[in-house]
Design a protein around this nucleic acid. Structure first.
Lengths: 125, 125
DNA sequence: CGGAATCCGCCCTGATACTG
DNA sequence: CAGTATCAGGGCGGATTCCG
């Protein structure tokens, strides 16, 4: 999901595959979920996102935001100021992903609870 | 999520990160979603999965199933027959992922509907 | 039938430096 | 502040071969 150099254009590849694949192409990946989860909270500036999401590099944040923008999920607004200010937020359609992300989070939480005690201490070998 | 050579052991890395990341580590990736979606339907044999999931290679199916097994989401049952028969199914806890996958599919479906008409024909340039 | 093992290319990702 | 440019490495994933 990262070959077309033309930004701001919904690419056909985002619509390939069954519905499950289409959705996971958008919210899957290493950073997309966290970015979207962060944006559920409301509009965020670039460096805000960088601080909230642990471990993400500037490059990756930029690239992933571009893809989400291309998907029509995230909106990017540039304010012509000095120093520049860029704000990211969910688009109107992007808002519809909120219950999905929240349910994913809930399941992840229950998974941690269920599996937290099952960690083998055999890695002390 | 693919370095530990010891199978059948829940690895700590599956529990790292916030709940959203934990969940997406399990259902994200290129094939996991489709595999889980297929298994929602019930127990499947190895080659059944291979036929149902378009484009997956034997290697990838094996690797992804192993990871899902390590996560405690998928159960692998080997029948000592000739020729061998191996059946995969969701574990009891794995069943809890069903509403998540279904909601992901639903969102993907609405995404296709919403964006299907927005494809730029500008690639005819 | 259901794998395991090996080889290998590509691209994803990180690190670093530079810019408007 | 919010990027872009460039380079380098590692691992993801495909193709192929072999096995019980």
């Amino acid at each position: 999901m990262k070959k077309n150099p033309e930004y701001g254009v919904l690419r056909a590849e985002y619509l390939q595959g069954c519905s499950v694949e289409v959705a996971l192409n958008i919210i899957g990946g290493k950073w997309k979920g966290m970015i979207l989860y962060t944006l559920l909270d409301g509009t965020k500036r670039f460096n805000e996102l960088r601080q909230i999401i642990p471990g993400i590099t500037q490059r990756m944040l930029t690239l992933q935001l571009r893809e989400l923008e291309d998907c029509g999920i995230v909106q990017r607004v540039v304010y012509p100021e000095v120093p520049p200010r860029v704000e990211y937020s969910l688009t109107e359609f992007g808002q519809t992903i909120k219950p999905v992300i929240l349910q994913i989070r809930e399941w992840g939480s229950s998974y941690k609870k269920a599996m937290g005690g099952h960690l083998k201490q055999s890695n002390s070998n």
